[in-house]
Amino acid sequence: MQRVNMIMAESPGLITICLLGYLLSAECTVFLDHENANKILNRPKRYNSGKLEEFVQGNLERECMEEKCSFEEAREVFENTERTTEFWKQYVDGDQCESNPCLNGGSCKDDINSYECWCPFGFEGKNCELDVTCNIKNGRCEQFCKNSADNKVVCSCTEGYRLAENQKSCEPAVPFPCGRVSVSQTSKLTRAETVFPDVDYVNSTEAETILDNITQSTQSFNDFTRVVGGEDAKPGQFPWQVVLNGKVDAFCGGSIVNEKWIVTAAHCVETGVKITVVAGEHNIEETEHTEQKRNVIRIIPHHNYNAAINKYNHDIALLELDEPLVLNSYVTPICIADKEYTNIFLKFGSGYVSGWGRVFHKGRSALVLQYLRVPLVDRATCLRSTKFTIYNNMFCAGFHEGGRDSCQGDSGGPHVTEVEGTSFLTGIISWGEECAMKGKYGIYTKVSRYVNWIKEKTKLT
């Protein structure tokens, strides 16, 4: 034993070699072989497995989906700052455009905790909710729209109204504003409101030439003092309507412009014939205590009207009353817009006519005020429907199939267009061939041609 100890002390290297040989010859039971080890760690190889990531292109799944990435790591994937920024906006807080917040056709661009709407022409605001041009839906104005110097929408209202708090709607500024039905039992019968379409306001006024200088022999019209197929109006439903009495009662109609003036057809009036105007009328054979009678003290036909040349060209006249009318729910003026808007309103496509005229061709006159909704007829169809001249200051309205029309005794009465609950004068009943005849239409004086003249002559002093 002493000898062994001496050998170990003198030859430590020998001992180490012996131990190493023993270990190498022993069977290893701690580690699995290569094949079995792979069965336990069965993990798919990654895209760049075996390579240094710093030297390969980034992978979106590896960089940002398996674990949260930084902007720089995302930049490695896209290799483009702009594309990385677009991805980053949604990656950080989701897609803010998912709810489609942009209105009126706006395009949404996502941002971090926010979004941006790219608005089409005519709109602005956070969600493109603000109209900035009158060309689109009248700028959301209830009545009139004008573009300011910086191309912003400025709404306005006709006389007797003021802008509401929203700067879009119009509200009454006087007790009985024009064009409004205020009798409670008839307010439910107000005709369907007309909503502004998209309009090209630059070209809204037709490029028409008034044929002022045409000389033409007097034409022989049949029954051209021209509501057939209409309905009984309720008291106060058309408070701007008046009836004219002269040699015979209810020979023509008219509309209240203001307390002192009536507008009617020029062919209705004769110099030297006494005319009485009755406002607030409903049943011409009954006294309903809503009527107001006034005498006409002055007749002003349009300066281009000449019955000797043509009885229905420039067929418009103004009547001055001896005493002002007292405005109330049964006696209310009709609204008159400017030339541009009167023309736009007419193009809405349908209007209402009213009167006490004959209820059928050569038949009896109506006792109760009649009204009828009539569609506008395109000019080409209008011209083809008659052998008589249709001037540019006239328009056609009615039904091709016949059966409904204005008729004798309705002449001078109103053709009105309702705009968001307020009625505007767009025409004056003038003439036609018979009444409600198939293929024939009622012919009306186009008020847009005469609004400046009306307003100039009827100013209240």
Results as ranks from 00 to 15, higher is better:
Gln2Cys: 10
Val4Met: 09
Leu14Pro: 07
Leu14Phe: 11
Leu20Met: 06
Gly21Gln: 03
Cys28Ala: 07
Val30Leu: 12
Val30Ile: 07
Leu32Pro: 15
Asn36Pro: 12
Asn38Val: 09
Leu41Trp: 12
Leu41Lys: 11
Arg43Asn: 12
Lys45Pro: 07
Glu53Cys: 10
Phe55Ile: 06
Asn59Ala: 07
Met65Ile: 14
Glu67Lys: 04
Cys69Glu: 03
Glu72Lys: 15
Glu72Pro: 15
Glu72Asp: 15
Asn80His: 06
Arg83His: 14
Thr85Arg: 05
Phe87Glu: 15
Lys89Leu: 04
Lys89His: 07
Asp93Lys: 15
Cys97Glu: 02
Glu98His: 09
Ser99Asp: 09
Cys108Pro: 04
Lys109Trp: 06
Asp111Tyr: 13
Asp111Phe: 13
Ile112Phe: 11
Cys119Pro: 03
Pro120Gln: 13
Phe123Thr: 10
Glu124Met: 10
Lys126Ala: 12
Lys126Gln: 07
Thr133Met: 13
Cys134Arg: 02
Cys134Tyr: 02
Asn135Ala: 14
Ile136Asp: 09
Ile136Ala: 13
Asn138Tyr: 06
Asn138Phe: 05
Asn138Ser: 12
Arg140Trp: 11
Asn147Arg: 12
Asn147Cys: 09
Ala149Asp: 08
Lys152Asn: 14
Val154Asp: 09
Cys155Met: 00
Cys157Asn: 00
Asn166Arg: 02
Asn166Leu: 02
Cys170Lys: 00
Glu171Leu: 12
Glu171Lys: 06
Arg180Cys: 03
Arg180Leu: 05
Thr186Gly: 10
Thr186Gln: 09
Ser187Thr: 13
Ala192Glu: 12
Ala192Arg: 04
Val202Gly: 07
Ser204Tyr: 08
Ile210Asp: 11
Leu211Phe: 09
Ile214Trp: 08
Thr215Cys: 08
Gln216Ala: 09
Ser217Val: 09
Thr218Cys: 10
Ser220Thr: 08
Phe221Arg: 11
Thr225Glu: 08
Arg226Cys: 14
Gly230Phe: 12
Ala233Val: 03
Ala233Trp: 08
Phe238Cys: 04
Phe238His: 04
Trp240Met: 00
Gln241Tyr: 13
Val242Leu: 02
Lys247Thr: 11
Val248Pro: 09
Asp249His: 07
Phe251Gly: 05
Gly253Arg: 11
Ile256Gln: 01
Ile256Asp: 00
Ala266Gln: 02
Cys268Trp: 00
Val269Phe: 04
Glu270Ala: 10
Gly272Arg: 10
Ile275Pro: 05
Ile275Met: 05
Thr276Ala: 07
Ala279Gly: 03
Gly280Glu: 00
His289Lys: 11
Thr290His: 11
Val296His: 01
Val296Arg: 00
Ile299Tyr: 07
Ile309Cys: 13
Tyr312Arg: 09
Tyr312Asp: 02
Asn313Ser: 12
Leu318Glu: 00
Leu319Gln: 01
Glu320Cys: 02
Cys335His: 02
Ile336Val: 13
Thr342His: 04
Thr342Leu: 05
Asn343Pro: 02
Ile344Leu: 12
Phe345Ile: 14
Phe345Gly: 01
Phe345Asp: 01
Leu346Gln: 05
Lys347Asp: 14
Lys347Met: 14
Tyr352Ile: 14
Gly355Pro: 04
Trp356Lys: 14
Trp356Gly: 04
Phe360Val: 11
His361Ser: 08
Lys362Ile: 05
Ala366Gly: 12
Val368Thr: 15
Arg373Asn: 14
Pro375Ser: 14
Thr381Ala: 12
Arg384Gly: 10
Lys387Asp: 15
Thr389Glu: 15
Tyr391Trp: 10
Asn393Trp: 11
Phe395Gly: 02
Gly398Ile: 06
His400Thr: 14
His400Met: 11
Gly402Gln: 06
Gly402Phe: 12
Arg404Asp: 14
Asp405Gln: 14
Ser406Val: 03
Ser411Gly: 11
Gly413Ile: 15
Pro414Tyr: 14
His415Asn: 00
Glu420Leu: 05
Gly421Val: 02
Ser423Thr: 09
Phe424Pro: 00
Thr426Asn: 01
Glu433Cys: 12
Glu434Ile: 13
Ala436Phe: 09
Lys438Arg: 14
Gly442His: 14
Tyr444Arg: 01
Lys446Asp: 15
Ser448Arg: 02
Glu456Met: 06
